[in-house]
Design a protein around this nucleic acid. Sequence first.
DNA 1: ATAAAATATTCCTTTACAAGAATATTCCTT
DNA 2: AAGGAATATTCTTGTAAAGGAATATTTTAT
Lengths: 108, 108
Amino acid sequence: MSANINATLSALAEPKRLQIVELLREGPLTVGEIAEKLELLQPQTSKHLGVLNKAGLVEVKAQANMRIYKLCQQPFKDLDGWLSSFGHVWEERFDRLDEYLQKLQGKD
Amino acid sequence: MSANINATLSALAEPKRLQIVELLREGPLTVGEIAEKLELLQPQTSKHLGVLNKAGLVEVKAQANMRIYKLCQQPFKDLDGWLSSFGHVWEERFDRLDEYLQKLQGKD
DNA sequence: ATAAAATATTCCTTTACAAGAATATTCCTT
DNA sequence: AAGGAATATTCTTGTAAAGGAATATTTTAT
């Protein structure tokens, strides 16, 4: 459903949001806990979580008057899949730069 | 030398730059070729390549009056490594949300 | 019903950054 | 040496987005 690498990368590119994601690796947390652990103000914590949620990186569950946020796994799997599409680049024994240079030479 | 995930993510978050990186998966290219294939103007192509270079995602080799750009592998490996640090999150059989909810219950 | 706690939302200001256009630089060719 | 090709740089402008402060919303407790 979501292989939107761009959206995932944009959401993760913001330092505070990256921190939030890293914190959530250890398990679900409420907004207040996230704000406290990362020393963020509550409003910006909520806003960042909103961005992460919109990008599909995070999901919420309401519990009493608080919201518990946890990571979604799909976008991370997608990102991992995308990264593996680079695999063959490193696999190649020869440096394709040499190949390219020879190709240039041949144009004379 | 570089495990700067933030820098890598920021550089990749820009759509055109992501395209450039995806294009370079298939091998080294000159600025002109990149600009042509992605239908970008040369100045912005150079600028995006500059950003990618500064972030360490790409390296240049001067050849005649052109510059050949190719991907660096380290940052992608780092990113892959970072992603695998999420592994244990999905591995866990039980949803830690349940665990968290029980912990909340216990606070009464 | 009211107050208080937890979270979300709005408004404003500031900043970062990408696009566009023009120009500068570098290197080759003749 | 001069001209042209490939690339880089500068300057300006427009825009998206992050931070701060204040306020609104929702839920629980009394």
